Computed example of a mutant assay.
Amino acid sequence: MVDLLEELLLLAVHEEKGTLSFAVTSKIDFCLSGALLIELELRNRVKVNKTSLEVIDRTPTENTRLDILLNLIDNSKRVRSPSYWVTKTKGTFKHLRREYLEQLVDQGFLREEECQTLWIFPSTAYPLRDNRPKREIRDRIRLVILREETSSPRTAQLIALVHACGLTNTLFEKEERNEARKRIKTLAKENILIQAIIKTIQGSNSGAYTGSF
């Protein structure tokens, strides 16, 4: 499992119910959009600072979504902020969450089940078919946070996304959470894209932004 979006969704989906909590639902689409930008940063295609996000390498990534986003940023008439690109990415990939959930179904990690919300509205749930990938991801994060093992850049970004998406409580026991929150918050504090994601979520909740299992 090498894709940040897949890992984040596996952590977010309830193992048996196949749904997302209400708190996570309000944040997940911004976090997934931000994760695409983080993927570009990890692949050294973009340079990010507090006021700008710019293309530094136009080489295709061989990932269709990332290449669309890379071209979108590269063709922008002016340099834009990370927060702008989080919002723009969310608007460009309107069905990103569903597409990635279905991708995880195709890979055999999730099942797709038709159900009803409030016993009335038809909806789709995605319970885990195989618990091992999620357990591996969770264990990797716990080792970094609780045992202070060295983190790879990709795992560090995933941990910061966990913070932005409000998933800390699902990964740690009650007695571990205070310590875990402090370490995760410290790790995320200097992460420019994560702070842009959080800022965009807060703006959306206050009505400053609009946009689109």
Rank of each mutant, 00 (worst) to 15 (best):
I68L: 15
W85L: 07
L32F: 15
S26V: 11
T87D: 08
A180R: 05
E113H: 12
A12I: 03
P153V: 05
S123K: 09
N75C: 04
F121S: 03
K90Q: 15
E149Y: 09
V46F: 03
W85V: 03
T87E: 12
V46Q: 05
P60H: 08
E176C: 00
R129H: 05
A12E: 03
F109D: 07
D106F: 02
R78G: 03
F22N: 04
W85H: 07
I68H: 15
R98C: 00
L96Y: 10
N63W: 08
V79D: 03
L193V: 11
V86F: 13
A160L: 01
Q202T: 11
Q195G: 00
P153S: 02
Y84H: 12
L32G: 12
R154Q: 13
L104V: 09
K90Y: 12
P153R: 04
L4V: 07
L4D: 04
E99L: 14
A208W: 06
S33Q: 11
L146H: 01
I198Q: 05
L70E: 13
R111H: 13
T59I: 00
R78Q: 09
I159K: 01
I145Y: 01
L187R: 13
L187Y: 02
T61V: 14
W119E: 15
N191G: 00
A125V: 12
A23C: 01
A160S: 15
S204P: 01
Y100E: 14
G108N: 00
G166T: 04
Y209V: 10
H14W: 08
D29M: 10
T51Q: 13
I197H: 07
P60E: 11
K47A: 13
S83A: 11
K94R: 14
T59N: 01
R45E: 08
I38E: 15
L20D: 00
I38R: 14
E148H: 06
W119N: 15
L104W: 06
D29Q: 14
K134C: 05
R45N: 14
L72V: 07
L104D: 09
